[in-house]
C-alpha cells in the first residue's frame, strides 16, 4: 500500500501542495493577528487571552483544511473517475480495495497532518511574537500551550474524518465542483459560531457533533471501497 501511496503522490504531484499548505498557514496567522492588532486601536480588543485567540485560529484552520482536503480528494479520487483513468488503474495487478484505501489515506493523512503542523507553527509564532507584538494582554506560558496538544490531535483526527464526507457528494455526479462546494458547506456548518453577544457557541463545541460527522466520513470512505470488487467499472 505504501507503494501505491507513493505512486499516487508522484502521479498527482502532491509535493506541490506543500506550497499551498504554507500559504494557508501564513494566511490564517496573518488574518487572526491583524484582527487582533486592529481591534486594539478601538479599545475593544477581540482576544483578551491565548485561549480566545486560538479559538478563532482553530476555527479557521478547520474550515481551511476541510476545503483544502476536498481539493485533494477531488484531484486523486473524483478526477480519476471523471476522466475514466480509474479504468486504467483497475487493469493493474493491484487489489482495488488497496488502491482506494491508499487514495483515501492520503486525503485523511493530509488533513490530519496539515492541521497538526499549522496548529504547531501558529502556536510557536504566537509564543514568540506575542511578547513583541502584543496580540492579547494576558501572557501565554508554555504549559498553557502544551495542555492543548491532546485536543489538537483529537480535533485533527475528527476533521480528517469529516474531510471524507465530500466524497459522497462528489461521487454521485463525479464532479469536482460538487466535492468542493460540499466541503465548504460542511466546513462552515460545523464551525460556524452562533453568538448572542455575551457567549457564543458552535456545533463543533458539542463533542457529539464532530464525533458523528467524523464517523460519517469514515463510513463513507469505507462504503466507497467495500463492494468495489463487485462493481462494474463502466
Amino acid at each position: 500500500m505504501l507503494k501505491i501511496i507513493k505512486l499516487e503522490w508522484k502521479k498527482n504531484r502532491l509535493t506541490s501542495y506543500f506550497k499551498g499548505l504554507a500559504i494557508c498557514i501564513v494566511g490564517i496567522f496573518v488574518a487572526v493577528a491583524l484582527m487582533s492588532l486592529g481591534s486594539q486601536k478601538g479599545n475593544d480588543p477581540m482576544f483578551p487571552n491565548y485561549e480566545e485567540f486560538m479559538s478563532l485560529t482553530n476555527i479557521l484552520i478547520r474550515i481551511v483544511f476541510i476545503i483544502f482536503s476536498s481539493v485533494i480528494l477531488s484531484r486523486i479520487v473524483i478526477d480519476e473517475y471523471k476522466s475514466n483513468t480509474i479504468q486504467v488503474l483497475f487493469t493493474y495487478p493491484l487489489q482495488r480495495k488497496k488502491i482506494i484505501q491508499s487514495k483515501l489515506s492520503i486525503v485523511f493523512g493530509f488533513c490530519f497532518f496539515s492541521i497538526i503542523i499549522s496548529t504547531l507553527i501558529i502556536n510557536i509564532s504566537v509564543f514568540f511574537l506575542n511578547p513583541i507584538m502584543g496580540f492579547f494582554e494576558a501572557p501565554v506560558s508554555i504549559s498553557e500551550i502544551i495542555t492543548t496538544v491532546p485536543t489538537t490531535f483529537i480535533n485533527a483526527f475528527m476533521i480528517a474524518g469529516v474531510s471524507l464526507i465530500p466524497l459522497y457528494f462528489g461521487m454521485r455526479k463525479k464532479s469536482t465542483a460538487t466535492t468542493i462546494t460540499s466541503a465548504v458547506l460542511i466546513g462552515f456548518l460545523i464551525n460556524a459560531t452562533v453568538s448572542n453577544g455575551g457567549s457564543s457557541t458552535s456545533l463543533f463545541q458539542f463533542i457529539g457533533v464532530p464525533i458523528v460527522f467524523c464517523l460519517l466520513g469514515l463510513v463513507i470512505g469505507y462504503l466507497s471501497y467495500h463492494k468495489i470488487d463487485k462493481i462494474d467499472v463502466a
Binding site: 483513468t85 486504467v88 470488487d229
Partner: peptide, 24 residues
C-alpha cells in the same frame, strides 16, 4: 474471480478511448 487481479500483470490493454493522465 471477482477479486482476481494477479493475472492482469500479463495483459496489456486499450479499452475504448485511450485515457491518460492529462497533466503528465
Amino acid at each position: 474471480l471477482e477479486t482476481s487481479y494477479e493475472y492482469l500483470k500479463k495483459i496489456g490493454s486499450i479499452i475504448e478511448y485511450p485515457e491518460f493522465y492529462e497533466r503528465l
